Computed example of a mutant assay.
Amino acid sequence: MKRKTIKNEVEINGIGLHKGEKIKLILKPGIENQGIIFKRADITDKDNIIKVSYKNLFDLERGTNIKNHDDIKVHTIEHFLSSLSVSGITDITAEISGNELPILDGSSIQFMEKLQEAGIKEFESEIEPIVIKKPVIFKDEKNGKYVLALPYDGFKISYTIDFNHSFLKSQYFEIDVNIDDYIEKISKSRTFAFDYEIDFLKKNNLALGGSLENAVVVGKNGPLNPEGLRYSDEFVRHKILDIIGDLYVLGIPVKGHIIAVKAGHYINAKLTELIAEEYKIFSK
């Protein structure tokens, strides 16, 4: 597999989910072997470069976030990373005007469209995937949450969600990940929240940019969004979108079968840490 970047610079504008601020994101071709890098364009008095790495993760309760040694942060990177992963992009610079990515419509389809608009360029050097050779497992048995990686000739994800809710209960979805199936079956699935969470989030200065235009809000009897769902099982498909992005903090493709039960960003991060330790991925 060749290392890849984009051919041309492209710009994405939108608001951040949690702070509600207008964000400009400029995607620029990367240098061979640089990895995935964020540059905070609004920071000039400190180191404004944050490299995507499992070692730079922090605060994974509501999203996937990274920071550098100067505590300069970028929040909510999982949808963007998911798009980079399925596009095979290994080297790119994302210049951003604030501390979180634009949420867009709550899915990754607009990131995919921008990457396709930018075009893909192959480098000469190869990147070897992490090949899962034996089970790697992380368990949170108290809360019934599990994620594991098993040997598999490809990249497959099987995901189960289970909520104690009047409308949203259990859903299961499985996919052999490739770019065409991802665009059709996963990329349009949106992030979601329950209506009873909204007041709590707002009071804690979270989801200030959230709306029915960029998230599915689940009420007692179903989604509050006038247009309804994009898929009957949109919720579990979005969890697959997320875990693809969360695994890509390794910066290297994974060859294996990922099985997740009631997992989330923190659980996913523990799996990446175990994989990195097992296969000696010492990214900085």
Rank of each mutant, 00 (worst) to 15 (best):
D246Q: 02
G20Y: 10
S283F: 01
N99W: 00
E78V: 08
A263E: 04
K262N: 13
L208I: 03
I130R: 06
D199E: 15
V216T: 12
F282A: 05
D70S: 15
S189V: 07
H238I: 04
E128H: 05
E11Y: 03
K139P: 00
S166P: 09
A215V: 02
I183L: 13
K255G: 03
F192W: 07
K262F: 05
R62G: 00
E61A: 14
L115K: 10
N65S: 06
E128N: 14
G14Q: 12
P151L: 07
I12R: 09
G219F: 06
G210M: 08
I240D: 09
I186N: 09
I77K: 05
Y231V: 00
S97L: 12
K7Y: 02
S83T: 05
A260H: 04
F163P: 01
Q110D: 14
I92G: 01
I89H: 08
I258V: 15
S187L: 08
F194T: 11
E227R: 12
I127C: 01
G119L: 09
K28C: 07
L27C: 09
N268Q: 05
G210L: 12
G63D: 11
I267C: 04
E78L: 11
F138I: 14
V216E: 13
T90C: 08
A260P: 02
N178R: 04
E117H: 04
K73H: 00
L250I: 03
G20P: 11
G256V: 10
K255L: 04
Y266T: 12
I244H: 09
I36W: 05
K142N: 09
K55S: 08
E273K: 14
K7M: 13
K67L: 12
T76L: 14
K22Y: 07
I109P: 00
N268V: 04
T191Y: 10
A215E: 00
H165G: 05
S87C: 15
A269I: 01
D246Y: 00
